[in-house]
């Protein structure tokens, strides 16, 4: 396959960036999208040019490190698939592909296609946990958890924290990410004692990080590689309201 790539290049966070065009004459349909970028980088380096910086690690769709907005869609056109699992057979010979970083104020560009998702870590640190120290845990079977609840918790916990939800949202809102963690723990008995606190604290940190507001577009859900449902957002809204109306100051 012959492809034309329009790739975002940006030296650093405070420097203006621009799209750069590159031709790839010989792309195998069996390559993954990132392997295609590897080929480009090999080509660039052999010409003495700086390779395109992009984030990636496990390349099997679970670490959440890879990103990229491909032709306007985070993680590209294939549903429920991360960029690293997207294969070039999804595209056609002669295609022009536009590759941009996830764009949000809360995700500043570090270089080229790499972004800083530290805001997600800070949201987690503000409440995405059960406050339990190591040791002293009761027997794992001491509290039964119904299969439906365990499954629902797992549906939410499947989030890989990639940030595609933010990238896809016209408002750069992080509600799907936050609600996935809130929803995961809200479905388990272990999460109950801090349920309200957690929702309040995580939402407030999310706001402080400069994400936009949810307007119920559900673009987040459509691009989520793990197909996390927007119903977790509704659930978090409920928890948040309840915590404010019925909880402490």
């Amino acid at each position: 396959m012959k492809l034309t790539l329009r790739i975002w290049r940006q030296k650093g966070p405070d420097v203006a960036g621009d799209l750069e065009t590159h031709e790839l004459p010989d792309v195998s349909p069996d390559m993954s999208f990132l392997e295609m970028l590897d080929v480009l980088n090999e080509q660039l380096q052999n010409e003495g040019k700086e390779p395109v910086a992009f984030d990636h690690d496990c390349r099997e769709g679970i670490c959440g490190m890879c990103s990229l907005v491909i032709d306007g869609v985070p993680h590209g056109p294939m549903k429920a698939t991360t960029t690293c699992q997207l294969h070039m057979r999804t595209f056609h010979d002669g295609d022009t592909i536009t590759i941009e970083p996830f764009r949000a104020k809360a995700f500043p560009v570090i270089k080229d296609l790499c972004i800083d998702r530290g805001a997600f870590d800070r949201i987690s640190a503000s409440g995405g946990f059960v406050s339990v120290n190591t040791g002293g845990a009761p027997d794992a079977n001491a509290v039964p958890i119904g299969k439906e609840d365990a499954d629902a918790a797992m549906d939410a916990a499947a989030c890989i924290g990639c940030g595609a939800c933010v990238a896809a949202c016209p408002n750069a809102s992080a509600m799907l990410y936050v609600s996935a963690k809130v929803g995961h723990l809200a479905h388990l008995p272990q999460g109950q004692p801090e349920r309200g606190r957690r929702a309040r604290s995580m939402v407030e940190t999310m706001d402080a990080e400069g994400f936009g507001n949810c307007r119920n577009y559900y673009e987040c859900e459509a691009v989520c590689p793990k197909e996390i449902s927007h119903h977790f957002i509704g659930g978090m809204n409920r928890d948040f309201l309840k915590a404010n109306l019925c909880g402490g100051e």
């Binding site: 009761p138 794992a140 958890i145």
Partner: peptide, 14 residues
Amino acid sequence: DQCVAQGVPFAREY
């Protein structure tokens, strides 16, 4: 035990 206390959603029976 520790993981369950943290909220790890292990598979469960009905």
